[in-house]
Amino acid sequence: MSVPKGEVRPTTDRVREALFSILHPLIKHADVLDLFTGSGAFGLEALSRGARTARMVDASRASCTTAKANLSKTGLEGGTVIQGDAVQFVKRELTAGRKYDVVFADPPYCKGPLDRDFVVELVEAGVAGLLKDDGVFIAEVQEGWGTGSEDSAGFDGLRLVDTRRYGKNMLLFYRLPKE
C-alpha cells in the first residue's frame, strides 16, 4: 500500500490489527467513515473485512490521490475517497442525514497547548449524530495533550466505553449514551 510522503502518520499495522480484532463483530456489512484517511488504510481494511461502504475523507490532495490509487489497486467495491475538511464534512453529513456503524478519526495529534484538538472539533461539529444506534466513534490520539490527557477524553453526548494504549498512542472508543 502506498503512503503519501511526509504528510501522514499512518496507524501502525499492530494498532490496526488490534483495532480490527475489536471491531470484528461490527465490520461485516457496516457503513464506515474514515476521517483524516491518509493512505486510506483503515477504510480499505474495513472493506476487505466485509464493510458495505467506506467513505474516506482527507483535506490533503496528495492523501486523496494515494487513497484513490490504493482503492483502485485493491479492486474493493464500496469505497469512496472525498477531498475535504473532516470537520466540515461531518457537518454536511449531519445535514444529509447519513449514519454510520463505525466512524474512525486519526487526525494530526494534539502535541501541545497551541495545537488544534481535532477530536474536540469533530465532537463539537456533531460526530455523535452520525452514529447509528449501535455505532462506535473511534479516535486515535497521542497520550498527553488535548483529548489524549486523562481528564479530557469525556464528551457530552458520547460515552467513553474503552481505551486502548499502544505505546504513546491511544484508541478511544465512544458510543451513544444508553437511555
Rank of each mutant, 00 (worst) to 15 (best):
W145D: 07
L19R: 09
E140I: 03
V15H: 08
V161Y: 05
A153Y: 10
F42N: 01
L23Y: 06
R9C: 03
D134K: 07
K28E: 14
G97P: 09
E140Q: 15
E45K: 07
G50Y: 11
L158G: 01
S63D: 06
G6C: 01
V8Q: 03
P108F: 08
I138V: 10
A54D: 11
L122V: 00
P107H: 03
P107T: 04
A96K: 12
E93W: 08
L35Q: 08
Q83Y: 07
A96N: 09
L76Y: 15
G78A: 12
A41N: 02
T80E: 15
A67I: 06
R61N: 10
L171H: 00
L76Q: 13
A30F: 04
E17K: 15
T66P: 07
K5Y: 12
G144V: 02
F155V: 10
P177F: 06
L158P: 01
A41G: 09
D162A: 13
Y166P: 05
K111R: 15
N169A: 15
V119Y: 03
A59K: 13
P113V: 12
G126E: 05
L47Y: 08
G112K: 06
G126A: 08
L158C: 04
F104W: 03
R175S: 06
D58G: 09
V3M: 00
M170S: 05
P108I: 10
E17F: 09
S149I: 09
R61D: 11
P107K: 02
V57W: 00
S63Q: 07
V3A: 12
G167S: 11
G75W: 14
E45Q: 14
A69E: 15
H24N: 10
P4D: 06
E77M: 11
T80M: 13
V127Y: 01
F137W: 04
A105F: 04
G146V: 08
V87F: 05
A128N: 12
R9W: 03
S72Q: 15
S39I: 00
L94Q: 12
T12A: 13
D101F: 03
I27H: 09
Y109M: 07
G6A: 09
A153N: 06
V8M: 03
V103G: 04
L122Q: 04
R175E: 14
G129D: 07
E17Y: 11
P107W: 00
V81S: 03
A128I: 12
F155K: 04
T80P: 01
P113T: 13
G84S: 10
Y100R: 00
A125Y: 02
C110V: 12
M1K: 00
E143Q: 15
T80R: 14
L176I: 10
S60F: 07
F36Y: 15
M170H: 09
S2C: 00
L23M: 04
G97E: 07
S72F: 14
K132Q: 08
P177S: 06
K111P: 05
T37P: 03
S2P: 00
S60T: 11
